[in-house]
Amino acid sequence: MKVTVKFLGALRDQVGAAALPVELPAGATYRDVLDAITPTVAGRLPVWAWDPSRGAFSRRMLVSLNGGGSLTDETATLEDGDEIVVVLPLGGG
């Protein structure tokens, strides 16, 4: 199945791509996606965006699944066509 990880705003410039398509076996989890993109993003995203010790996006990034709530559960099972969106939170009062 295919899952897409989209990077918005400044993260898009950091990664050098608006989206990374990931091919995974059916039943793959969010952790599998993180492992799949690690070789690409780990060297491009600084520590404020990518936490190398956890091999995951820093807890400060807003990560959502298909435009819904925040995606934190690494055991969450994904489906073909899912879109994970990663945003650097900026702005605010």
Partner: peptide
């Protein structure tokens, strides 16, 4: 900033965006 970054502001066609590079 949301539209610039690639986040739509709703489902209406007028609120859509393809986003841009933040710095280009």
């Amino acid at each position: 900033s949301a539209l610039e970054g690639g986040t739509a502001l709703g489902s209406d066609p007028l609120l859509q965006t393809d986003g841009t590079s933040a710095f280009g």
